[in-house]
Nucleic acid binder design. Sequence first.
DNA 1: AGTAGATACTACGGCACGTAGTAATTCCGT
DNA 2: ACGGAATTACTACGTGCCGTAGTATCTACT
Lengths: 137, 137
Amino acid sequence: MATNPRTRLGELERAVMEHLWTASEARPEGLTVRDVHDAIGVERGLAYTTLMTVLDRMAKKKLVTRERDGRAWRYLPASSRDELTSEALHHTLGELAGSERRSALLRFLDQSTPEELDELRAALADLEQREGKRKTG
Amino acid sequence: MATNPRTRLGELERAVMEHLWTASEARPEGLTVRDVHDAIGVERGLAYTTLMTVLDRMAKKKLVTRERDGRAWRYLPASSRDELTSEALHHTLGELAGSERRSALLRFLDQSTPEELDELRAALADLEQREGKRKTG
DNA sequence: AGTAGATACTACGGCACGTAGTAATTCCGT
DNA sequence: ACGGAATTACTACGTGCCGTAGTATCTACT
């Protein structure tokens, strides 16, 4: 109930987002239901209308945006993968009090691979560099 | 489906875990259904059996463990809040490919408060210190 | 032996999601 | 202008999870 639905996609929904994210780079006008069905629905043996329903629901949940193009809709992701992931992470952490967050993070890092830790450090470094830049000019 | 149910608690389930986490510190034998009902069920006007059902389901989902005590069960959290949170975070990040994770983390940090960043840095420092210790001794 | 308290079993409604059918609308080509 | 093909709109159904709880059953103690 309080659980933000945007942070919890079903499998098909996720696949759709995945496709929208990658395919929309080359097609800023957005993808039609047909496009999405052809790309990920056919191989799964899904009906065209199934993708229609799913995309429709996702539009209502603000996971995707859509725009008319003649009689068809053109769909685009409403948020980037980064944004959605970030949102999910904040959502998870948001359920904790400040003091708990610290130890949860510690546990998280503890259970991270060295690669993941490097990624995190790199991200932090990036951020700090930008912060620095902002400060000095 | 692939979504780990352990990472997605309902409101009541969360409240139960919350109570178990805090109350079980003083009571390592675990709490009975009655305890939990008295603590969080009564004020919500919930039936005793509601808490029974919920705790039962949670035991089946391995969110809590339980042990017989006469005819009653004694419940304890199966994982700490930290573990569960960490699991959820990994779950979220696990849906991403390595290259995507980096930028998702960046976005995440970007949208974090300075306090959160400090918490994260502190946790990282902790970890590194322990790593260092392990290496040298 | 009866009663209080506990569990076991079963159930129901709501919501999210996967899945899809049918009806209505519209565009295009001839 | 008309018919067919494409597209959407509306509706629906099954399943699983969760909140919620009733009833039946069991058992320990008085």
